[in-house]
């Protein structure tokens, strides 16, 4: 696994992908940091939370080539012929992508040090946001791995990953729309009274929102830590990594 990890991590720096991802991340985080600085009050949690919105751009860039590039070049066959397990392949690539995220995140650590130097404070909630950032990154990178394993085109893989992340980012909006829709429908056709309609709408909204990792992890930034959202992110990441593993393994028995 280490060999795969090393090869994949170095490959980020043997082509422009890694540098572009880091440049993009450092530019966006830099803009946020300077924006906070001009306000006279630096809230690192705020910077990191804003950076989470850019998973939708950065994750596809980082993960699009993980498996699709090997498939396009035909080097995918090495997974099956070398004395390594497919699990090692998936985990090695996943950890390499996560390491790139860690490297990108060094920018934020520098911003934290600058905040302290400038007399600001870095509170527990800020560290909570850092933890959440990496758990969410793990979830989305796993999703990106899965999208990359689906196709031999990096572009399609990036688009699929983009759509997946977009859907996840809009879960709470969907929930809100659906809640309004259901309540309006039930009230318009007098199916139930308004109190019951509100209750049904609220239940549906809560159920959908339960799947939203952003809502689940919101309170970390205020210093309220919970193990459950982290477990949620990791378990979903494990699921997508397992799906990736299964897609790769399919080649062993698939007739096509």
């Amino acid at each position: 696994m280490f060999a795969i990890f090393k090869r994949e991590l170095l490959s980020y720096f043997r082509n422009p992908t890694g540098y572009i991802a880091i440049a993009l991340f450092s530019f966006i985080s830099g803009v946020y940091f300077i924006n906070l600085l001009t306000r006279g009050a630096i809230n690192i949690s705020s910077e990191i939370t804003q950076m989470r919105s850019f998973f939708i751009i950065i994750v596809p860039i980082v993960t699009m080539g993980l498996f699709s590039e090997d498939r396009r070049r035909g080097t995918e066959v090495l997974y099956y012929t070398n004395p390594i397990t497919l699990f090692d392949v998936v985990m090695g690539k996943f950890l390499a992508a996560m390491s790139l995220f860690f490297i990108m995140f060094i920018n934020v650590f520098i911003h934290m040090i600058m905040t302290k130097i400038l007399g600001g404070v870095v509170v527990t909630g800020d560290w909570g946001t850092v933890i959440v950032f990496f758990f969410l990154a793990a979830l989305f990178v796993a999703l990106g791995c899965f999208a990359s394993a689906l196709t031999d085109s990096q572009l399609i893989s990036a688009i699929v990953c983009f759509v997946f992340i977009l859907v996840i980012q809009l879960v709470s909006t969907f929930a809100s729309f659906l809640e309004t829709g259901v309540v309006t429908l039930l009230e318009t056709f007098n199916i139930v009274n308004s109190e019951t309609a509100n209750a049904i709408g609220s239940t549906i909204s809560d159920a959908i929102n339960w799947l939203d990792p952003f809502t689940k992890t919101n309170n970390f930034r205020y210093g309220v830590f919970s193990v459950i959202p982290l477990f949620f992110c990791i378990s979903i990441a494990v699921f997508f990594l397992y799906l990736t593993f299964r897609i790769l393994e399919k080649k062993r028995w698939s007739q096509k």
């Binding site: 909630g125 309170n219 205020y222 210093g223 309220v224 919970s226």
Partner: peptide
Amino acid sequence: LGKALTFDFSSLGKY
């Protein structure tokens, strides 16, 4: 375990 595994580490325990 939702409640048991939630901890307030906020500054001065404001939550």
